[in-house]
């Protein structure tokens, strides 16, 4: 019983932090305690959240991907240009965007696995590639007028009780659910954690290390492209500068969720709470209105620092005990 609590401690700390933050914001700002604000936590962070789901899987394996923000920008402007300027059907354009994202991910995974290059360097180069590609397509943002995409923007599922779940929130919830199943109820997810824990042992156990690592970057590339599609639906336009700095937000969300940055330990539910914490800070800053966007960066950075310190503290204690 005690051991299981200790194992779940990072998750409990994250959940507790969210409750404290949400209640504090609710007391400080009028109208914060409402189902609309709560749903907005999902809607406003949908793009970051979907990227964070993929990032969680990559970090499970002990890797990191700095290219997600740029892939979001690339997908966003590619989608808008294909649909608005070339008359391509949105479904076809979306498929192409997802395939390109997955392709870039697979390419980076291959460089990392086959040529033994450090993940941060390869994905940093991938970030330049995707952002340069996005600005190559267009440096101006393009408004989306296609009826299908406009319809998706305005659509919301109303399960009753005054709840309105827009498309972007639904996509985020679906991505989280899929990520949860993939991470904790499939062989692939267990392989990821095993590789992140100790790659050498995983190799000796006969796990398909190379294939798993390439697949996880491919999957993350597709996730980032999906996040880009979400951004298009959310903002109603394609913008090549979308998602600058978003990779750090995604990493922060994952780490705040209690996932170990060195890999091998973590939980997808933690990422859910990480997204909620991130959304709460964003909403609170918006409600306050006096504090600029610079503060979001600072608060997220400090929160990231705080949770890393906490992880070190708990890990240090666990190491001493064993």
């Amino acid at each position: 019983m005690k051991a299981s609590i200790r194992r779940r401690l990072p998750l409990l700390v994250t959940a507790g932090t969210f409750v404290v933050l949400f209640v504090t914001a609710g007391i400080m700002y009028d109208g914060f305690f409402s189902s609309r604000v709560f749903v907005n936590l999902f809607t406003d962070t949908a793009s970051t959240g979907v990227a964070a789901v993929g990032m969680t899987l990559v970090i499970f394996s002990g890797g990191i991907d700095l290219s997600v923000g740029a892939v979001i920008g690339f997908t966003s402007i590619l989608m808008a240009t294909l649909v608005e300027k070339h008359g391509v059907h949105p479904a076809v354009a979306a498929t192409a965007a997802l395939a390109l994202g997955a392709g870039l991910g697979a390419f980076m995974g291959m460089l990392i696995q086959v040529f033994r290059q450090p993940p941060f360097l390869v994905t940093l180069a991938g970030m330049f590639l995707a952002r340069g590609g996005a600005w190559w397509i267009s440096t101006e943002s393009t408004e989306i007028k296609h009826p299908l995409l406009v319809g998706l923007s305005g659509f919301a599922w109303e399960p009753g009780g005054g709840l309105r779940l827009p498309t972007t929130a639904l996509v985020l919830v679906a991505a989280l659910a899929a990520g949860y199943v993939l991470a904790h109820h499939t062989r692939f997810g267990r392989n990821l954690l095993a590789i992140g824990g100790n790659e050498q042992s995983a190799l000796l156990m006969g796990l398909p290390v190379a294939a798993t690592k390439i697949w996880v970057y491919t999957l993350n590339g597709a996730c980032a492209a999906l996040a880009g599609l979400v951004a298009v639906i959310y903002s109603g336009s394609g913008n090549p500068s979308q998602g600058i700095g978003l990779e750090l937000d995604a990493i922060a969300v994952v780490v705040i969720g209690g996932t170990l940055l060195s890999g091998g330990r973590g939980h997808m539910l933690g990422t859910l709470f990480g997204i909620l914490i991130f959304g709460t800070i964003q909403s609170a800053l918006l409600f306050d209105g006096r504090l600029g966007s610079a503060w979001l960066r600072i608060v997220v950075g400090l929160l990231l620092l705080g949770f890393i310190l906490l992880q070190r503290l708990m890990l240090g204690r666990a190491d001493r005990r064993s």
């Binding site: 780490v255 610079a294 600072i298």
Partner: peptide, 25 residues
């Protein structure tokens, strides 16, 4: 604290940009 260099300096990267913007409004 024994944080990986990428992560430690990533924190400084984000907070630093925020602080710089704060200094100049």
């Amino acid at each position: 604290v024994r944080v990986q260099p990428i992560v430690a300096t990533l924190i400084l990267m984000v907070v630093g940009r925020g602080v710089a913007q704060l200094i100049t409004d």
